[in-house]
Amino acid sequence: MRLISRIAGGCVMLFVDGLFFDVFWVMVTLVAYFAARFLYRRYPRWWLSPLLIAPLLVLGLALATHVGYGAYFHATHWLMLALGPATVAFALPIYEHRAVIRRHWPVLAIGVVVGSSIAMGSAWGLATVFGLSDALRLSLLPRSMSMPFALIVADDIGGIPDLTAVFVVVTAVIGVAMGEILLKWLPLTSSLARGSLFGMGAHGAGVAKATEIGGEEGSIAGLVMILSGVANVLAAPLVVFLLR
């Protein structure tokens, strides 16, 4: 195993700055992504979430071949450009469920404001209690948002977007498991509450889970996730002001 990793590492080192290196790591990322998705389709357990497995597969190979984050990110960062059009794509669920928004906007607004405030407040408070550094604390603040929004907000408030990305993923994986447990204990009467629990607490992965519970829960979760993301991006200057 050590020999193989050294040979592989040697091969990769030969091409460190070359096109081969970039193409190789993009291929690794693609293969890891599709493998993780395939695995989850066969064994849908929360701890086998592609959110966890896809990065772990890439991580394993990067550690084995001694490739640093800087080099990996340099090779693959352009994949992240697609987050922009994906954000634009969020307009579609908003438009499709505009009747739900028109009917329930006060309740949705309460959910978004309360949820976002608790998300940022709890991250700030807990990070302070645990004595975490300022950079970590700021990067933890947007962790409950959907990835494209979280990265924008992290950048706006002076956090480190890459660290936020890690916290966002961990939040989603934990959130899906926790949401299922909470749903059994909380006396929630409305699909509105069940949906917003998942949309606010576990963003994208939560929306997928909520959709399994019910169509209405799924669309509410999606709406809450998108609306809170947009609201947080727009409110980022306010957060910066409060942090001063």
Partner: peptide, 29 residues
């Protein structure tokens, strides 16, 4: 461990708070 605890507890608070706030305001509505 500290980072994990921050995310875990924070997510618990977010889910509890959001679900209860939405459920109560929906009942009121």
């Amino acid at each position: 461990m500290k980072l994990f605890a921050t995310v875990l507890l924070g997510t618990l608070f977010v889910m509890l708070g959001t679900a209860l706030a939405v459920d109560l305001s929906y009942r009121w509505w």
